[in-house]
Write a protein that binds this DNA or RNA. Sequence first.
DNA 1: TTCCGACAGTGGGGTCGCAAT
DNA 2: ATTGCGACCCCACTATCGGAA
Length: 515
Amino acid sequence: MLFSDLVASSNRVAGTRSRLAKLRELAQCLRALAPEEIEIGVLWLSGEIRQGKIGLGYAAIRQAQPAPAQEASLTLLDVDQAIEQIMTTRGAGSATRRKNQLDSLLSRATAEEQSFLSRLVVGELRQGALAGLMVDAIAEASSLPVADVRRAAMYSQQVGTLARAALVEGSAGLAKFRIQVLSPIAPMLAQTAPDVETALEQLGGQAMFEWKVDGARVQVHKSDDTIRVFTRSLNDVTDAVPEVVEAIRGIAAREIVLDGETVALDSNGRPLPFQITMKRFGRKLDVDAMRRELPLHVYFFDCLQLDGESLADRPARERFEALERALPAGIRIPRITTTDAAAARAFYDGVLAKGHEGVMAKAVDSPYEAGNRGAGWLKIKHVHTLDLVVLAAEWGSGRRNGWLSNLHLGARDPAGGFVMLGKTFKGLTDSMLEWQTKEFLAREVRRDSYTVYVRPEIVVEIAFNDIQSSSQYAGGYALRFARVKAYRPDKPVGQANTIDDIRRIYAQQTTMTDR
DNA sequence: TTCCGACAGTGGGGTCGCAAT
DNA sequence: ATTGCGACCCCACTATCGGAA
């Protein structure tokens, strides 16, 4: 297939808002792919590439602006080969060589192909369809039941592999997709609940509550002496986390697949801030030195496979029983099962007092929905709110084009002026975007290419989860997961929260985690 | 007819590794 | 040595479509 045909198909997908029309267009394009093109074509139409990340991002794309080709000549395989070459270019001088290779590829592409490639490489295809819709399109194109394809998708690491199996081998091909030890699967994700009482109600009056630890997700596979540790995005980090490997090396189970969270603890066993865990977890070098300084602990909360038996479809209760049989208590997440809201509340309070970020509430009978944000798992985290002052706003992109979107947030400095604590674009409705654009422009003092700076007159109520120490912001603090709750036109700037309030919350946090 | 589940989009902060400066 | 970029950890929230109720 010509690359231009696939790009045209993507543009037609982007050109309609109807998901059914997108699905039909994708399915039609899938049917036209040659067998050896299925994997790459399906990935590209899902906004991904076979090679994953290739060491080029927004900055590289912005610099590369060669004149487009007049005629479409590239095939899918041509483009795949060029991407492969870029990805394998490493070592001294490689950044320059990769940019040259990108330039060379783009110069062989038409204007539309260039646009598609650029969006693909930076990971922002923005055609209104990604792997989620592609799974349905695969079912359509292969005439296989949607439920079967979706089920297989839970256990496939790449939608391209799934598509090739479905289109070439049919239902027999789908059967290959199941939990296999040493092969990671997409972890189940959780929805959010505002508090434990609501969570208990949503889960039907009975739920399991467990610690929510603020670290990094790990999926651990053991097959005899072979142990592998994978991240949430299925990267293999086995060599970076020897403690996790050692934690299950000695268990009796010959074969097991576990879901858990790893976190750095202090000498008293209290959790360290996420930033500290990431100093350790994010590092690949000097692991031995790092583990002496910042040892990791792991808490497992689910068991997907145990000695040849897949448990993912079993009720949560049974999976947790398997966990208890297989693991010592020290590496199992503490949990209670209750119907009593007061007990749940007391558990939540206790978990926060131990320095953790909140609790998970889980339905006792729900299956493990790999890759899904299942309604059977709810997270409840502690939230702060403060009234801050808008210092500036950045122009939005995509559907927020033409609106001032991303807010620069400042706390009042009692000594005069404001201390910036970060930015947020979250929580804004379309009508708020419209309102704030008008209000900010009326208060503009200056602007640059992205940002309109305003007189500090607008107070906004901001929710956030934590305060992190920051080297980026002058005050030394940054809000974690900041989002807008409401504008506070009733509140004069003089009554907005101050940097002292921030320091107080930060001190509270660090006391909580005993540092 | 209304409700709601699933998706996609819109970006946030920090940390590390690596190449360029 | 320092700087900038890219990859990857953690994410929250709204709008929308289309099937479920």
